[in-house]
Amino acid sequence: MAVQRSDQNSVAGSRIKQFIKSLNAAWFTQERIVFAIAFILFAAFSVSLNGFFSVDNLINLMRNVSVLGILGIGMAIVVIGRGIDLSMIAVMAVSSAWTLQLMQNGHSLGLALLGGLVCALSIGVINGLLIAFVEIPALFATLATGIFLYGVGKSTLLDLDVIYLPENLGWFEEIGKGRIGPVPMAIILCGVAMLAAYLFLSKTRFGRFIYGTGDNPLAARITGIPVRVIITAQYTLASFIGFFAGIIVSTAVSAMNTRIFHSTMIYDVILVVVLGGIGLSGGKGSIRNVIVGTLLIGTLLNGMTIMDMQYTMQNLIKSLILLGAIILDSFLHPRNEETAQQGDI
């Protein structure tokens, strides 16, 4: 018996040793660190801020970040494929605003939705073509198409900066306003979108190809993966997700304010993705990282709002955190002179 016990002890001991060993390196993934920070922040806010830890506020928090989470999915897909999409907010704002505008102009809901969708997808395809075929750096191309779309929206498509949702649209309004039990529809839609994206990225051939393309585009191309098609598809998908998020926003508040393009929302989306642990060098990460990143940002935004912090100060703090996240990312996925790609800006 005694012998057996000592055996058990030693087994347990070695397991602990292994655990500690694994703590040193592998356990400290960015995802876990961020999750821990989110948890600590959450606990701190719960203790220190009045009205933070209440069901209403938490549901509110979740609903507020659900749009960020959805946009984060689109950005995650693009970033995994070694790209970035700065035009997502412009797509979200202008395409959904145009849908509302079409309805204002007396068109049917179906036609309006189709119009918005075509608008969003065409920008996605243009992004993809510019990046995959013309080989313009992704940041650059999407920055320009975002400005382009916003300018077109402002000057030709839309009458005003803020477009309101017509009344009595039935089920359509439920997308943003509805609830299933106590849970707002937006949270459920965000969850569904995340599940779908998870399955898409991990279970479908196309999803795996995105990982391959992001990890090493040249090798992927040699293997026979249609890299250019994949890249075009991933931007189109991101634009589609932007449109989807825009519909949720505009039905939730019964309007779409296109000035949101000038806000720092796109950086929030990047923050979600980068902070969650999806490396900007591509090929790494999953939807789980998006969830973690969304939770952290949600907690932070909600806490700062409850603290009644100035909007400009919030921007400053968020952008400093984003800078910290990028620096962390560069330490976790370092580049050096020997492996850096020429012209990689």
Partner: peptide
């Protein structure tokens, strides 16, 4: 720190 110029200056 060898960050990417584009993203970094976008954040600054």
């Amino acid at each position: 720190l060898k960050l990417r110029a584009f993203l970094t200056t976008l954040v600054t």
